[in-house]
Nucleic acid binder design. Sequence first.
DNA 1: CGGATTTAACTTTTT
DNA 2: GTTAAATCCG
Length: 733
Amino acid sequence: MSKVNNSPNIQLNPVQLEAVKATEGPVLVLAGAGSGKTRVLTSRIAYLVQEKKIDPYQILAVTFTKKAAQEMMDRVQKTVGRSNGFWIGTFHSIFAKILRWDAQAIGYSPNYVIYDKEDQERLLKNIMEEMHLSPKMYATQAVSSAISKAKNGLVSPDAFLGQVRNPFEEVVAKIYPKYEKQLRFNQACDFDDLITLPIKLFTTRPEVLKKYQSRFQYILVDEYQDTNRAQYQLLHELAKNHQNIFVVGDDDQSIYSWRGADIRNILEFEKDFPAAQVFRLEQNYRSTKNILKAANSVIENNESRKGKTLWSDGEDGDKVHVLEVYDGQEEAQKIFEKIKNEVFKNKRTFRDFAILYRTNAQSRLLEDSLRRSGISYVIVGGVRFYERKEVKDVLAYLKVITNPNDAVSLQRVINFPTRGIGERTIEKLRIWAHQNQKSLFEAAKYVNEVDSIAPRTKKTIQHFHEMILKYIDLKDKISLSEWVYTLVDEIGFLKMYKEDGTVESQNRADNIRELLAAIPDYCKRVEEPTLASFLEEVALITEIDSWNESANAVTLMTVHSAKGLEFPVVFITGLEHGLFPIMRSMNDDHALEEERRLFYVGMTRAEKKLYILWAKRRQLYNEISSRLPSPFLDELDKKVTHITSSYHSDFAPKSFESKPKTKGMQFDSHPDYESFSQEVTTLEKGSWVQHEIFGKGEVIKIEGRGQKQKITVRFEGNVVKKFLSQYARFNIL
DNA sequence: CGGATTTAACTTTTT
DNA sequence: GTTAAATCCG
C-alpha cells in the first residue's frame, strides 16, 4: 500500500496511485465494481489541488446523480479541507447553470423552465392534436422516446427526416421539428436540451466555448459508460485543447443504453484519444471471493466487453444462496425470515440489508409483507415527491410566473382550482394565439378579441391573467418564501384539501406544506436564491437523492437505482424468465447483454451475503402466471452457489395466508388450486364473510365475474370496502 | 359547455 | 393502486 503525499488518510494501491498521478493528457480508468473508483477520483482532485497547485475553480467533475456528486463533495471536503469553488455536479445541473448564464446568446431567457417527462408529453399531445393525429395510433410515449433518442444521438429534425425508415418514423419526423419549435417558443428545455443546447451554444459562439475551455483545465467524469453521444460531444469540445480528460467507468456496468448511453464511448476511448493512458482497477475491496466468483461467472457470458476479472484477497465468505420459492408472498416471507435471522445471529441492523428488484411494480408485495412483519424499511423510487400531482400544480404556478411563455404549465393551472375555464375555451385561446403569433399568456390578456368565448368566461380569464401579473410584480418586492406562501394561500390549495377531509386530501395538503418548507431551506442554502434556480434544482432531483442512508431501515429499490451503492446483505428478487431478464429483451442480443450487466450490478452490491430468489408463480399486472427460472441462474458458478427449494411438491404454500383446512375459500389467490377447487361455495349479495383484517361483514354488491369480479362489503362499524375477489382474503360464513 | 363521477388501462429501467 | 378517458349530470 502506497500513499499520496499530503493525503495520509487516503490509502491507494499501486495502480490507483498511478491513475491519480497521471494528471496530464487523456486517461481512461476501467474500474470494476467495488475497486475504489470514487477513492481514485477524489484522491486525484486532492492531488491536483495540493501537489499541482491547481485552482479548484479550474476543476470540473461530472457525475450522473446528485448523490454521487454530493459524496464526492464530502470526500473532497475531508481530504482537501474545502469543497467550495470546485465544479462538482451532475451533467444536467452543471450545464443547466451554464445555460442560465449564457443561453441568451442562442435566444434563451435566463428564466427558461425545465420540462419533465409529463410536461414533455403534454406538449407533444397538444402538437399531435393540432396535427389531427390520434394518440391511440401514435403513443405519445413512443414519439417522445424516439425524439429523445434522436436528440441524444445529435440527430437534428432535418437529419431525422433524411433517415426515416418506417411509417412511424415518418410521423415522428413531422412532429419533431414542431416540438422543438414549441419548446423554444415556450422558453422551455427538456432534459436532453440541457446537454444539446450547450453544444449548440458552443458551436455558434466560439468565444463562449473558449471561456469554458480555459476555465475547465481538468475534467473528470464518473460513470463514463453511461454517457450518451451528446454528452461525449460536449466533453470532447471542452477538452479538445488541453486534453486533460480523466474518465472512470466500467463497461460491465453499462445499464442505461435505453436512455441513449452509448457503450462505444468507453469501448473506443483510446481511438478517440490516441494519447490515452489506460488503467485497470481489478482488485475488489467490497465483496467476498465467492460473491465475486459468482458475479464473474455470469458476466463472462457477455460478448461485447473489454474483459476484466475482479479478484479479492479477502475471505471466501458464504456461498451465494439461490432460493426457489412458491410465489411472491413466500419470496417476501423468506426475505424477512433471513433478515430477522441475520439480525439475531450476526448482529446486523436493518440498514445492512437491501432488497433489489427489476421493476418498481414488484415493490408493493414486498412492502406489504415487510410492514406486517414489523421490519422498518424505506423504498427508493415510485412516485417522486416533486412529481406528485398537487406538488406539480403548485410548481406549475411558479413556472408560469417565472416564465409566462410556458404554455404547458399555464394550461395546467388556468383551470385549477376550477374556475369555469374548460377545455373548449382553452382550445379557442390556443387557436387565437397561434393565428396571431402570440403566446397563450398574451392571448389571455387579449381575451376580449377572441369572439367565440362567452363574456362571463372572458371575465374569469382576465381575472386569472391579472392575478398572475400581480405575482410577477410582487416577486421582486418580498422574500421568495413569503411570496410563495401568499400565492398558495390566495389560490387556496390548503383550504381546498382541508374541506375535502379524506385521508388522501390530508396527504396532499401535507405534501404542499412540505414543498413550502423546502423554500426557506433552499434560500438559506444558496447564495443567490431565485425562483428559476429553485425550480431547476427541483427538476433535477433524482430517485436516489432522497434516500436517507442514516435511517436504520431495510432499503427497497430497483437494481438500476442501486448502482454505486453497497450493502452487507443483498437480496435480488424475481430472477425469472421474462421478468429478469425482462420479456422484451429476450429476442435482442444487445438488450439481453444489458440485462445480464444489470444482474451483475445487482450481485456486486453485496459485501458479505448475497441471496437470489425466484418464485414458481407470481402475480404480475393483474394476472397470475407460472414462471420459469431466469437463464442467468444457469450461468452461476455451481461451486460457489447453494440452491434451496423451499417447498417440496406439497401443494400448500407455506406463506402465511394459507389456511388449507378452511372451508369455502373461494377467494384464495390461486383459484385453480387443486386442493380448494372442490370446496368452492357460492357467494351472493347478502352473504356474510369474515375478513382477516376487517372482521365480519355483509356483501352488498357484486360486479363482473371471473378474475375481474369485484365485491363490495360493509363491515362492522359501517366500514365499506371494495375488493377484487381474486385477491380478497376472507372466508364465507 | 363545464364539472363530477365512474370506468378502464396501465406498469422496464430514469437524468 | 393510480391516472386518464368516458360517461353522466346540471
